[in-house]
Amino acid sequence: GQVHVGDTTYHFPNPEEARKFAEKAAKENNLQVTQHGNTFKVE
């Protein structure tokens, strides 16, 4: 799974890890998570 936060892309071998990371980043920054397959975008 990939997580895009601003201009930075994080790669995770496990989509579940990617999702947890995205949700945590979104919560900390008052942002939203959008999911496209195994790619998550925090914005």
Rank of each mutant, 00 (worst) to 15 (best):
Y10T: 04
T34A: 06
K41I: 15
V33L: 07
P13W: 06
T39K: 07
L31S: 10
H11E: 08
V42K: 02
H11G: 04
G6Q: 05
K24Y: 11
P15H: 10
P13I: 10
G6H: 09
F40G: 05
E16S: 08
L31N: 05
E43T: 11
V3S: 00
T8R: 15
E16F: 07
Q32T: 14
V5R: 03
E28N: 09
K41T: 15
Q35K: 09
N38S: 06
E17H: 06
K41F: 15
V42M: 03
A25V: 15
E43W: 11
Q35I: 07
P15N: 08
N30K: 09
E17D: 12
Q35T: 06
A22D: 02
V5T: 03
G6D: 06
P13A: 13
V42S: 02
L31F: 07
R19P: 01
D7A: 10
A22E: 01
V42T: 03
F21I: 02
N29F: 14
Q2D: 07
T8P: 03
N38P: 07
E16P: 03
E43A: 12
T8A: 12
T34D: 04
H36S: 10
D7M: 10
K20Q: 13
N29M: 15
Q32G: 07
V3T: 02
A22Y: 01
H36I: 14
V33E: 01
G37C: 14
V5A: 04
F12L: 01
N38E: 05
E43L: 10
T9C: 15
N30R: 08
H36G: 03
F40H: 04
Q2Y: 15
V5Q: 04
K27S: 09
G37Y: 04
E23L: 08
K20G: 05
G1A: 15
P15C: 15
E23H: 08
A18M: 00
P15Y: 14
A18K: 01
F40N: 05
E23W: 08
K24A: 13
T9W: 14
A26D: 01
G1D: 03
Y10M: 05
T39Q: 11
H11N: 10
A18F: 01
F12K: 01
E43K: 05
K20A: 13
T8H: 14
V5F: 15
F12N: 02
A25M: 15
E28T: 08
V42Q: 00
G37H: 04
H4D: 08
E16W: 07
F40M: 05
A22P: 01
Q35W: 05
T8D: 10
N14M: 04
